[in-house]
C-alpha cells in the first residue's frame, strides 16, 4: 500500500458570475495516491459540508476521461501536470507529500464563471450548431459500405473526432482561441467523403460563430496541443486555415430556390 500524502490547496472561490472571486486555502490530509484528483476534492468537500461550509463547486460527470465535463486549471495547467490526461483521470500519485496546489477555473472571456471552478462553455455548442455537422436527416441513406473511405483518412478523421469538447485548449491559449476545437471538427468531417458537400460553408459558418463569441485567434503558440487531453494536433488548425482561405476566396452568396411546380 502506498503512503498517504498531505497537501495544501489554493482554490478559486467565486459565488457567482457577478461576485468577485478569491483564492482560499484548504488542507487535504491523508490523501491516498490511488485517488483521482476529483476524489481528493470529494473528500475535502465532505469535510467542508460536515463543518457546515459551502463545498467547492466543480463540473464533473463520467470520471473516465471521455465526457469532457471536468475542467480545472491545476498549477497553471489545464487538467494538471500529466499530458493527455483529464482532471478526472489524474491521480494523486502525480503529487508529492507537502505539495501546494493551485486550482482555478478555465479562464477565458467566452467561458464566464458560474461558480467556483464551474464555467459556462455553451459557446462551443453554438459553434457546432453553426456548422459542425453533416446535414443528413434521419431516413434511409445508402448502404454504409457503398462509399469506401481510405483507411488512412478514416484514421485521421478519428484522431480529430476524439476531441471531447472540454475547452482545455481555450484555457491554455494566451488568446483564449478556440481554433483547436473548431479545427478538430472541421478536420474530422473534411477528411471524410460524407463531409465534402458542406466542407467550405462549414468552415465559414463555424469561424463566423467563433468570432461572434468572445474567442481570440490563433497566433501559433501551440499551448493548446500540449494541454489537449486527447492529443488533438496543431496540424488540424493548418488544415482549417487552408479550408477557410479557399472558402473565403470561393464564397458566393446563397442561391435562393424558387420552388417547384
Amino acid at each position: 500500500m502506498s503512503k498517504h500524502i498531505n497537501l495544501t490547496l489554493h482554490v478559486w472561490r467565486q459565488k457567482n458570475a457577478k461576485c468577485d472571486g478569491k483564492f482560499v486555502e484548504y488542507k487535504a490530509e491523508q490523501v491516498s495516491p490511488d485517488m483521482s484528483f476529483l476524489e481528493m476534492l470529494d473528500v475535502v468537500n465532505e469535510g467542508l459540508i460536515s463543518k457546515g461550509e459551502d463545498p467547492i463547486t466543480f463540473d464533473h460527470d463520467c470520471r473516465e476521461g471521455i465526457c469532457g465535463t471536468c475542467s480545472m486549471v491545476i498549477n497553471g495547467r489545464p487538467h494538471g501536470p500529466k499530458e493527455r490526461t483529464t482532471t478526472c483521470q489524474l491521480h494523486m500519485r502525480s503529487f508529492k507529500d507537502g505539495d501546494s496546489i493551485t486550482i482555478e477555473p478555465w479562464r477565458a472571456e467566452a467561458f464566464p464563471v458560474i461558480r467556483d471552478l464551474m464555467v459556462d462553455r455553451s459557446a462551443l455548442d453554438r459553434i457546432i450548431a453553426a456548422g459542425g455537422f453533416v446535414s443528413v436527416p434521419t431516413g434511409s441513406p445508402q448502404d454504409a459500405n457503398a462509399l469506401p473511405v481510405p483507411k488512412e483518412n478514416a484514421e485521421m478523421a478519428m484522431d480529430a473526432a476524439a476531441c471531447i469538447g472540454c475547452g482545455a485548449c481555450v484555457a491554455a491559449c494566451p488568446n483564449a482561441s478556440a481554433m483547436l476545437f473548431l479545427s478538430a471538427k472541421i478536420s474530422h468531417l473534411g477528411l471524410l467523403p460524407q463531409g465534402q458537400p458542406e466542407r467550405y460553408s462549414r468552415v465559414r459558418d463555424m469561424v463566423a460563430q467563433m468570432d461572434a463569441e468572445a474567442f481570440g485567434t490563433c497566433t501559433n503558440h501551440g499551448e493548446c496541443e500540449i494541454a489537449c487531453p486527447k492529443g488533438i494536433k496543431l496540424e488540424n488548425i493548418a488544415r482549417m486555415n487552408r479550408d477557410f482561405i479557399k472558402a473565403s476566396l470561393t464564397y458566393r452568396p446563397a442561391i435562393v430556390g424558387t420552388g417547384g411546380g
Binding site: T138, S140, D143, A144, P148, A154, M158
Partner: peptide, 22 residues
C-alpha cells in the same frame, strides 16, 4: 442496419479495413 447507414452518412468515423470498407 439502418442505424449503421445513418451513422456513416453523418460522418461517424467507424473503423475500416485497407480496402476502405467497414
Amino acid at each position: 442496419n439502418n442505424i449503421i447507414d445513418q451513422c456513416v452518412a453523418q460522418g461517424v468515423p467507424f473503423a475500416r479495413e485497407y480496402g476502405g470498407l467497414l
